[in-house]
Computed example of a mutant assay.
Amino acid sequence: MTPPDAEAFYVRLDDHRYIPTEHTRGPWDAAAQHAGPPAALLGRALEERPGARTDMRLARVTYEILRPVPIAPLEATVTVLRAGRGTEVVEAALAPEGGRPVMLARGLRIRTTEEPGPAVADGPHLPAPSETSASPFFGVPWEVGYHTAMEARFAEGSWLERGPGACWLRMRIPLVAGDAPRALDRVLVAADSGNGISNVLNFERHVFVNPDLTVHLQRHPLGEWVAVEARSGVDEAGIGLADARLHDEKGPIGRSAQSLFVAPR
């Protein structure tokens, strides 16, 4: 099926089924999605399933990227694994219609307090997006994809520099056609970029892909911009870790981590 021509990452077919557009396309395979958009889609499924409690918020989500996510119709299913008074654990799966799951998400939702409590800041602020300049993505062999659907502004480093980096990311289009972008969409669509922001190896000589992603959120972002302040390390055995602090313009909002599989091309 040809992806629809829509200014969004996905077109909704019904409550569970979606068609990806070409804006989901990642930089490595013309037939596969960047992991950011499907991660955000599963985040929505965890938060918005029928009967979901409105007094809880997603505090942690771990993704298992089982295989490349195709640019093809997908179905999201949700299962409640544990429901308690103060916390619940929910699992969502994304699969092509009639196929095996390609991505799993297990989320921890925590009950929020009715009255505001003490807030403790966690770390320094980054330079605001307005204090940085637009940063084009590294060369991608197709004109449209995740790299054109996201606006990037580096506060430290760049896509082409090796080592730690800090990049502000903003969605140019909504996650789902007809729906305004939501706070959780904005952070989850950006969090999988930590590996690329903090790359420590030559793209042309090495593969370094992440088979998982974990995001912890002490609060959900405010505003349109999310920053990923990341650094990567790689062991000689070919296993690495990309660790990132996540920010909005008010300050840190949480962390993300990606295990890395590293190999020569």
Rank of each mutant, 00 (worst) to 15 (best):
F9E: 05
H220V: 10
E47L: 15
P37F: 06
L241P: 01
A230S: 14
A152R: 04
D14P: 04
T54I: 11
P118E: 08
R245K: 09
A45L: 04
G251T: 10
L169C: 13
I253D: 00
G84A: 12
A263T: 13
K250W: 08
S135E: 15
T2P: 13
R44P: 06
L217H: 02
A177F: 04
D5Q: 12
E115G: 00
P264L: 15
E22P: 03
A83S: 12
P252G: 14
L175W: 10
E48Q: 11
A31G: 07
H34C: 07
Q218T: 14
V11Y: 08
Q218W: 14
A72W: 07
P127D: 12
G238D: 01
V226G: 02
L108H: 11
S130T: 14
E115M: 11
T148H: 06
D192E: 09
G145L: 05
N202H: 15
P96H: 09
R17L: 06
L169D: 05
A166N: 02
H16T: 14
A227R: 09
P264N: 13
A40W: 00
Q218K: 12
H34Q: 14
L42R: 00
D179A: 12
N210Q: 11
E64N: 15
A39Q: 08
W225C: 04
A155S: 14
G157R: 02
Q33V: 02
R106I: 11
P136V: 05
V187R: 04
A263D: 15
P70T: 13
P37A: 07
E75Q: 14
P174V: 09
N202V: 08
V120I: 15
Y10I: 04
A8M: 07
P221F: 13
L108P: 00
S135P: 02
D235I: 07
M56R: 12
E97A: 03
I110M: 13
A191R: 08
E7F: 03
A76M: 01
L46S: 03
F138V: 04
A35P: 10
P20F: 02
L46P: 03
A183R: 02
G98M: 13
G165S: 11
P211V: 10
H216I: 01
P164F: 10
G123E: 08
L108C: 03
I197V: 15
L241F: 07
S232K: 00
L188T: 04
R25Y: 12
R60L: 06
D5F: 02
G26I: 04
G123V: 11
L46G: 05
F203I: 14
F137Q: 10
L201T: 09
E97L: 15
S158T: 01
H125G: 15
R53C: 05
L222C: 09
P50G: 09
F137L: 01
P3V: 08
A227D: 10
V189A: 13
H34P: 06
P264I: 06
A30S: 14
P252S: 15
N195Q: 12
M103D: 00
L188A: 08
T112G: 10
L217P: 00
L104T: 08
E7V: 10
I239N: 10
W168Q: 06
G98N: 12
R205I: 04
G99R: 11
G165R: 01
P38R: 06
D248W: 05
E143D: 14
G196P: 10
G194K: 03
A244W: 05
P3A: 05
Y10A: 01
R100I: 07
Q33M: 08
Y18N: 00
R186A: 07
I65G: 00
